[in-house]
Amino acid sequence: MIFETERLLIRKLILDDLAPFHQLESNQNVLKYATGEVKNLSENKIELLDLIERYQKTYNDFWIYAIERKSDKKFIGTLALVKDGIDDEIGYRFLEKYWGNGYGFEVCKGTIAYCKQLKFKKLVGYVVDENKASVKILEKLDFKIVKKFISEGLQLLETKYELEL
């Protein structure tokens, strides 16, 4: 386990996560404001294996964890902590059937606490402005707007948010 919140466990991905991971990464609605590109099962298996392998790398700067519901041990999404050389970025995705339950807010709040323990200086989040749910979460957690721009891949208005820890 990496950390936990009241209802969620954040842990490393495992190969047994393939079915729900594939469900997540092949849902157009989930990826609408991220990559926009759904993948087939074999592509998602390759990606999952790569993400699992990254846990062993000394200089890994791309951490993707499973979000599991404590009540029934169900995989419900993923949490990303990414270093781009300047910023520590948070990102998350949930299976569509778990949207609207407050899990996004809960995992973000838990990630902030976890990153404070690790002595991070700040966290950033990039959100497509049309993604009202994620905008609301970051603003509720006091992330501040740093800049607005058109995203490269999706060609949508996107905002970079920052939270000083």
Rank of each mutant, 00 (worst) to 15 (best):
N29L: 15
L13N: 00
N131G: 01
Y33F: 15
E89Y: 07
G36M: 07
K148N: 15
L118G: 00
N29G: 06
L51Y: 14
N27P: 10
N44H: 09
L163Y: 00
D16T: 13
N29E: 15
I67D: 02
K119W: 09
Y92C: 08
A113F: 05
L138H: 01
N40L: 09
L51T: 06
L157T: 05
E139W: 09
S71V: 11
D16A: 14
K74T: 10
G36F: 06
G102C: 06
N27M: 08
E89L: 08
V135L: 05
V124R: 02
I2K: 00
R7V: 00
K160S: 10
G77E: 10
T111Q: 03
E68L: 02
S26R: 09
V128N: 06
K121Y: 00
Y161E: 03
G36Q: 05
I14N: 03
V30T: 14
K97Y: 08
D129H: 06
Y126M: 11
V128A: 10
E106V: 02
P20K: 01
L141N: 03
I14Y: 03
E37G: 04
K140H: 15
K116W: 08
Y114W: 15
M1D: 03
E43S: 08
I46G: 10
N44Y: 13
K147A: 06
G104H: 02
I14F: 01
E152K: 14
V107N: 03
R69K: 15
F3K: 01
L81W: 07
A80Y: 10
L118V: 02
E158T: 05
D61E: 15
I52W: 00
R11T: 01
L18Q: 05
V135T: 09
G110A: 07
P20M: 02
L154S: 03
I90G: 12
C115I: 05
V30E: 10
P20W: 03
A80N: 14
N40K: 07
K119P: 10
D84W: 04
K73T: 14
Q23G: 09
L49C: 13
L49I: 12
L24H: 06
R7G: 00
A34V: 14
V30Q: 12
C108G: 02
M1C: 04
C108M: 12
R7F: 01
I86G: 11
R7P: 01
V38T: 14
D142K: 13
W63S: 12
R93H: 14
F105M: 13
F105E: 13
Y65H: 09
K45H: 13
L49E: 15
C115A: 13
V146E: 15
G153R: 04
K57F: 12
V38E: 11
E53K: 13
G153F: 00
F21S: 04
L157W: 02
W99T: 07
A113H: 09
A34M: 13
G85N: 10
D50K: 15
Y55G: 07
K45W: 09
T111R: 02
L157H: 07
L141Q: 03
V107P: 08
H22E: 07
D84P: 07
L95N: 08
Q56K: 14
V82T: 07
I145Y: 03
K97I: 12
L24C: 09
F75M: 12
A34H: 12
L138Y: 01
F62S: 11
L51V: 03
L9Q: 00
H22F: 11
E25V: 04
V82N: 12
S71C: 12
K122W: 08
K160P: 03
T35I: 10
E43K: 07
L163F: 01
V135H: 06
L48F: 08
E164A: 06
L157I: 02
